[in-house]
C-alpha cells in the first residue's frame, strides 16, 4: 500500500523557548505498525503530542489522509480519526471501566446509533477479556496492565484511522506487555495505521513494518523494521548489542533503555 494515513511534514515543535523536534518527517500507513524509537528526551512523546493535537507545532504540517489538519486541537482531531493512547495510560480513574469506554465514543454520541456504540463496546471487550469481567469496576482500581488495556480500548472506541501509542509497555510485567503487544500487532488488520512509541525496541521492531529512530529531535535513521533491526548502530544503541537476540525474534524481555547502557554492556 502506498497511501499514507498520517504524514508529518517538517515538524518543528517544543515547549516555550525549548525546541524539541527539528524538521521531522515521518509517515504512518494504513494496515501497518510504524515504530518510533529513540532515547529518553529524543522527542518521541513530543512528536505524538503534535500528531494528536495536544501541542501546536511552530513549523511544519500534519496531514491526515492528505488533508491538512495542522493546528487542530486534540478534541477535534479525534473526530477526524486520530486517537492517542497517552503515556502512563491516563484513564478516568474515578469512573468505571464501562464509563471510560463510553467516553471513548463521546464524539460519536448523537451521530452514531447507540447500538453501534454498544457493538463496539463488545468488540473491544472481546479483545481484552480481562476488562470484560470488570466493566463495573473503577478504572483507578485496575492493575497497571489492565489500565493500559483500558486506555487502548478507550481509544479504539473512537474508531480511529490512526492510532498513536505512547509507551504501552511502560512499567508492565513482561507477560502483560506480551499480551498487549499481541493485541497491538493485530490492530492493523482492520486497516488502522498504528504509530508506536516504545522503549522496548525489540518488541516494537518485532511487530512493526517500518521504523524511525529519533535522536535529539531529528530522524537519525529510518527504514523497514527488519533492516533496522540488523543495523549495527541501532543494534548497539537500542537492542543490547548481541545480534543473536534479534534473530531469535519476539523476545519481549525489556532491553536496555538508553544508549549509554548499551555501550557499557
Amino acid at each position: 500500500m502506498t497511501e499514507t494515513a498520517l504524514r508529518l511534514d517538517g515538524l518543528t515543535a517544543g515547549y516555550g523557548a525549548l525546541t524539541v523536534l527539528h524538521e521531522v518527517h515521518a509517515e504512518a500507513r494504513p494496515g501497518e505498525v510504524t515504530a518510533l524509537l529513540g532515547a529518553n528526551g529524543a522527542g518521541k512523546s513530543t512528536l505524538l503530542a503534535v500528531a494528536s493535537g495536544l501541542l501546536r507545532p511552530s513549523a511544519g504540517r500534519v496531514w491526515l489522509h492528505d488533508r491538512d489538519v495542522t493546528g487542530l486541537g486534540a478534541e477535534r482531531l479525534v473526530r477526524r480519526g486520530i486517537a492517542l493512547v497517552p503515556e502512563r495510560r491516563q484513564v478516568f480513574s474515578t469512573m468505571s471501566v464501562m464509563e471510560n469506554l463510553l467516553l471513548g465514543a463521546h464524539h460519536r454520541m448523537g451521530r452514531d446509533p447507540r447500538a453501534a456504540v454498544r457493538l463496539d463496546v463488545d468488540r473491544v471487550l472481546g479483545m481484552f477479556p480481562a476488562l470484560a469481567r470488570r466493566t463495573g469496576q473503577l478504572a483507578g482500581s485496575l492493575s497497571g496492565g489492565e489500565q493500559q488495556m483500558l486506555a487502548i480500548a478507550r481509544a479504539l472506541m473512537a474508531r480511529p484511522s490512526v492510532l498513536l501509542l505512547d509507551e504501552p509497555s511502560l512499567g508492565l510485567a513482561p507477560l502483560v506487555a506480551r499480551e498487549i503487544f499481541s493485541v497491538i500487532a493485530a490492530l492493523p488488520e482492520q486497516g488502522c495505521a498504528v504509530l508506536l512509541v516504545e522503549q522496548n525496541a525489540r518488541a516494537a521492531l518485532a511487530i512493526a513494518r517500518y521504523c524511525y529512530v529519533l535522536e535529539l529531535g531529528r530522524v537519525a535513521k529510518q527504514g523497514r523494521a527488519e533492516e533496522l533491526a540488523r543495523d549495527p548502530a541501532v543494534h548497539a544503541a537500542y537492542l543490547g548489542g548481541r545480534k543473536e537476540d534479534v534473530d531469535a525474534g519476539g523476545d519481549l524481555s525489556p532491553g536496555p533503555d538508553r544508549p549509554h547502557h548499551a555501550r557499557s554492556a
Binding site: S52, G53, L54, G73, A74, E75, R76, V78, R79, A83, L84, P86, Q90, V91, F92, S93, T94, M95, E99, L102, L103, G104, H106, H107, R154, A155, M157, A158
Partner: peptide, 20 residues
C-alpha cells in the same frame, strides 16, 4: 459524564473529543 471526565482528567478528556 463528559463534565465528570473533564474534572477527572482534562487532557484525557480532550483526547476523547471533549472540549474543555
Amino acid at each position: 459524564r463528559a463534565l465528570r471526565a473533564c474534572a477527572v482528567n482534562p487532557t484525557a478528556a480532550r483526547l476523547v473529543g471533549i472540549s474543555p
